[in-house]
Every structure is written in structure tokens, then in C-alpha cells.
């Protein structure tokens, strides 16, 4: 049993490494790849804006309300809430939760789209034409993701802090100046760097894992569903493991 699981794991890992070599081989025609990258940036980045906006504003709002509940009536000053919301958002909530959310939205979409192409013989058609399908299908998505997802994460952080602001002001929990004082307190720019490293790493992981699941899908709608689910689950697990490693290494 353990042997079989270990064999499967190493087989998949080996296949992934070999496939990544194919993905990073020289593109046949730069302008065709570039056109596809722009298209993916729009689908993946601009297309994810509404959901990132909604989730982030509530992250910030809920975090603020919860912390106010925790520290009200204690000796901890209220402005600490702004400080905690800011740092939690930058270090953890914005990169990790936004990318886990995008694993669900973008990752499952990538797996289903590429898997559908495999099942409808579109990948075979491109193989017959001599196109490096791994590179053509994955590289534009990967470039789009590692460029757009950090931008989405920055935006998510800003919106989340704004959500905290609205919750505190509109909820009459404490004053605006207390919240803003908190935002200005103990700021460490290095934390923003950690956030970007996380966003970049998670973008790479969720795109390649999802594309891999779709690229090697077997025939049938059940397999396509499995590939889509695996893309989300494995991307989320990989994001959490990477999150832990980055936290250990960088903090």
C-alpha cells in the first residue's frame, strides 16, 4: 500500500519535472505566445477582480470586528487593531487567502480548460502541427499568473485594510484616527516583500499544478471533474506548505 502510494507520488513528481522542462523550452513564435499571454492576463487577472474585491473587503471588516471584540475592555489600546489588521493582511491574509481563493477560481478553470482541450483532441491537433503544447498552453498562463496574481494580492491587501477602516468607522467601534494611528505604527517594509514573495510563489504553484492536472487528464467527464478538483485541492495544500516554509525561512 505505502509502496504503491510512494511509487505514484514519485512517478507524478518525475513526470511533473520532465513536463516543466518542456514548459520552459524556447517558444516557437514569441508574438503568438505574447498574444496568448495578454489574453490570459485579461481572463485571469481582470476576470478575478470582482471576487477578490468582495472577499478582501470582508476579510478586513471581519478581522477588525473580531479583534475589537477580543481587546475591548482590556488595557490594549484601540489603535493596536489597525496595526494588527494591517500586518495580518499583508503577511498572511492577502497572499495566502487570495491565492487559495484563486486556486478555486483560476486553478479549476485552467485544469478544466486544458483538460477539455486534451479530451477534444485539440492538444493532439497542435502536436500534429509540431507545436510544443506544454509550452504553448502553460507558459502564457504562468507568465500571466506570476504577473497578475501579485498585483491582485497587493490590491487585496489594500481593499482588506479599507474593509477594516469601514468596519471600524461605520460600526462606531473606535475612531478613525485610532485606526489610522494603528496603520502607521510599527510598520516594517520587509513584510511587504514577504507578501510579494508569497504571492509570486503561490501563483507559480497554483498555475503549474492546475495546468499539469488538466494536461494529463484521461478521457471522460468524471476524469475532467477529478482533474479540476485535484487542481484545487493540491494547489491549496501546496500553497499552505509553501506558506509554512516561507514563514520559516523569511521571518
Amino acid at each position: 500500500m505505502i509502496n504503491t502510494i510512494a511509487y505514484k507520488l514519485f512517478y507524478q513528481l518525475g513526470q511533473w519535472v520532465l513536463w516543466m522542462r518542456q514548459v520552459f523550452s524556447k517558444p516557437e513564435k514569441i508574438n503568438v505566445y505574447w498574444r496568448e499571454t495578454i489574453r490570459q492576463m485579461n481572463d485571469l487577472g481582470v476576470g478575478s477582480l470582482p471576487v477578490v474585491f468582495i472577499i478582501s473587503i470582508f476579510f478586513g471588516a471581519v478581522t477588525t470586528v473580531q479583534f475589537y471584540y477580543q481587546i475591548s475592555g482590556t488595557f490594549v489600546p484601540n489603535y493596536y487593531i489597525g496595526y494588527i489588521v494591517r500586518d495580518m493582511t499583508i503577511i498572511e491574509l492577502a497572499p495566502t487567502f487570495t491565492c487559495m481563493l484563486l486556486a478555486g477560481k483560476v486553478g479549476s478553470n485552467i485544469a478544466a480548460e486544458i483538460g477539455g482541450m486534451r479530451q477534444k483532441e485539440i492538444i493532439d491537433a497542435m502536436d500534429v502541427m509540431g507545436v510544443n503544447t506544454a509550452a504553448f498552453l502553460v507558459l502564457p498562463r504562468l507568465i500571466a499568473a506570476v504577473f497578475m496574481i501579485p498585483l491582485l494580492v497587493i490590491l487585496a491587501a489594500a481593499i482588506s485594510i479599507l474593509g477594516g477602516y469601514f468596519a471600524s468607522v461605520w460600526g462606531n467601534l473606535f475612531t478613525v484616527s485610532e485606526f489610522i494611528q494603528g496603520l502607521h505604527s510599527f510598520f516594517i517594509p520587509y513584510n511587504v516583500f514577504i507578501m510579494l514573495v508569497k504571492a509570486f510563489t503561490f501563483a507559480f504553484l497554483l498555475t503549474t499544478i492546475s495546468a499539469y492536472q488538466g494536461y494529463f487528464v484521461k478521457s471522460g467527464s468524471i476524469e475532467l471533474g477529478k482533474a479540476s478538483t485535484n487542481a484545487v485541492v493540491l494547489s491549496d495544500v501546496a500553497i499552505l506548505v509553501a506558506d509554512y516554509i516561507i514563514a520559516l525561512v523569511m521571518t
Binding site: 477539455g116 482541450m117 477534444k120 483532441e121 485539440i122 493532439d124 491537433a125 500534429v128
Partner: peptide, 10 residues
Amino acid sequence: MLFQGGALFD
């Protein structure tokens, strides 16, 4: 090559 389902990009 012509594929069974056309194999066109949707």
C-alpha cells in the same frame, strides 16, 4: 490533420 470532432479552439 482533420480530427473527428474538428478539434477547434472554442
